[in-house]
Every structure is written in C-alpha cells, then in structure tokens.
Amino acid sequence: MALNKRQYDELARYFEFDTWRDVNRLSTNLFILNFFVTGKEIELAEWSSSDVERIKPREEAGIPVTLSVWHKSMGKNLASISMRIHECADRAAAHRLLLEHLSFFQSPDIFQLKESKIGDVVFGNASHHFLLFARANLIVMMTNASRNLIRVDEFATKVDNYLANEPSSSVHANTPFVEPVRSMTVIKSVQHKPPAWQLNVIESPQVWYKFYAPSGDFKNHKGQLHYKPHPKVETSTLKAYAVMPGGPSVQQDLTIKD
C-alpha cells in the first residue's frame, strides 16, 4: 500500500519512528545479499519447511521476497509458522518498509517490544502470536499458520541468530568471490556519494552472502552492492561469507584503503 506524506507522517508519529529509525543493535554493520532458505537449515533445528518460494522482482526497484511455512511437531499437534522475508537495499530502506507494513496493523494490539533482543527493532502483540522485525537490510514477518496457536518468538530468535551471527564453521576462500572496485557511481544518499567501492560478487544460485564491516555503510543500488567507508577511517577490514545451506560457509577477508 502506497502511503502519501500525511499518512506516512501520522504513522511515523504513532509508532515513534524517530526512536528506532536506522538503529543497529549489532556491534558491526551487517549486509545480507541474495538471501534464501531451503527449509532444512540445521541452524533452525526442530523446524523444517517443504513450502519455500523466493520471488525475484522484475524491476530494479522491486524487493526480493522469500515466503516459507515452517512446521514443528509438538506432541500430538503440529505447529506451523508462516515467514515472509523482504531483502531491502539497505538498513534505512528496511526500516521504512517495516513502518509501511505496520500500517496494516495500526491498532493498540501491535506495539514495539522494547525488551526483546530480536532484531534491530521488533513489533508484535502481547500473545507473541505475531512478530515483525528488522535485522540489517531485511525485514521478517512471522505469523501462526495453523489453528494450534503458539508463540513465534522462540522460532524468531533462531532465525534472527541465523541471520545476524557469523557462521560457526567456515573455510577461507581459495579463490576470491568478491572483488572491491573503486566506484564513482552517484547514489541518491548522503552516505553513498562518491568515493565508494563496488563489491563485485561472483554470484551462485546455491549460496547467499553476508558482509560485516566495523564501520561504513552498505547499499544495494540497482543490483550492485556498494560499500562506503567511514570518512575518518583510512583502512576498512570487511568479512564476506558465502553461505551454503547444509554445507560449510566460505570466508573472504577484504581490506579497503581510501
């Protein structure tokens, strides 16, 4: 649903957007690229899914979406959770999209869960049967998908840890899969005016990617990942991971000097 400026401003006031806009609760900057799930991630133990769909946008401005339904046996009952993940251009875009999604749930029943450690920011209801959170450049929505209603926060914590944490086991890349190249592309964002760096990724349909940087900003601009170092940092050390679900992750360290 497209919001006009008046609607957007009212929504921002209602959900106190200025208090959580661009908040990063990690000690490093994280960016996730080409995310997908297979339904058999060992990090999401006890939960599995055979119903996964990744929708790639036809237009550059579109946002990739991963849809999945996850199941877990609970005694004689089967619990099911529907999960929808949007991959945005950067953290700021993810937070704006989260705010727009909250327009569907503008009621006293949906509020910010300030004591929760899930995501950079998280909203839900008192029963925790519904959660909507942002982590880095992703937003994640979880709801019950069966009559057997359960709290979704336990599963949300597993998913959030899977997204946020560096892979517990990885091997160093024999062949680099990311090439940093100086870029002079003008991006309509103060944080991403030149000089910046293009991170040219050798993409594979079997993997998705995590990038960690102690400072600076990431942005996916028209399908090209850019990194803007902090202006006061001469040398930036980044970590890149190619994540293969069910297999070892591959790590590449990047050193960028301005």
Rank of each mutant, 00 (worst) to 15 (best):
K76D: 15
L113R: 06
N24W: 14
P214T: 07
N148M: 08
E166H: 12
M74E: 15
I118C: 04
E59M: 13
N174E: 15
W47Y: 11
N125H: 05
H192Y: 12
D120L: 02
L163Y: 12
F177G: 00
L132K: 08
Q7G: 03
T143Q: 05
A173M: 03
L225W: 07
N174V: 12
W20D: 04
F111R: 05
A156H: 02
D153Q: 09
F31L: 01
T157I: 02
T143S: 01
F104M: 10
S82V: 07
L113K: 04
F130M: 12
I187S: 08
L3V: 14
Y162P: 01
S49W: 05
S204W: 10
Y212I: 11
S49I: 10
D51F: 08
P108Y: 12
M142N: 02
Q7F: 09
I150P: 04
Y212H: 11
P229Y: 06
T175W: 12
I63Q: 03
H172T: 14
T19E: 10
W208R: 02
V65H: 05
V207H: 09
K219F: 10
P180Q: 09
A134P: 03
T19Y: 11
R135Q: 11
V37Y: 06
L149R: 07
V243S: 00
Y8Q: 15
I81F: 02
L98M: 13
H71F: 12
G247N: 14
P195F: 05
V250Q: 06
N200L: 06
Q206H: 13
G62F: 15
K76N: 14
R96V: 09
T185P: 01
T66M: 11
E59T: 13
I85R: 00
M141L: 14
F104C: 13
L97H: 07
S249H: 03
A213L: 08
E87W: 05
D160I: 00
M1H: 14
M83I: 12
V152N: 02
K158W: 03
A79I: 03
C88T: 00
R91I: 07
Y14P: 08
D109F: 00
F211T: 00
W70K: 09
A92P: 00
L67C: 06
V250W: 05
K56S: 14
M142W: 03
S107P: 00
L33C: 11
G119S: 08
S170P: 06
V207K: 04
K72G: 07
P205V: 04
D120N: 03
V207D: 06
S103Q: 11
K72F: 04
E115V: 06
L78N: 11
A213K: 01
E10A: 15
G223W: 08
V122P: 02
P229W: 03
T175L: 13
D18I: 02
R96G: 10
I256T: 01
A164I: 05
W20M: 13
Q206L: 15
I139R: 03
L99E: 01
Q206T: 15
I32M: 06
A94G: 09
Q7K: 15
W208T: 07
S103D: 12
R13A: 12
D22E: 14
K228E: 08
N200Y: 13
F105P: 01
M83D: 02
V52A: 11
E16D: 15
K188M: 10
E16T: 04
F17D: 07
L26Y: 07
W70V: 06
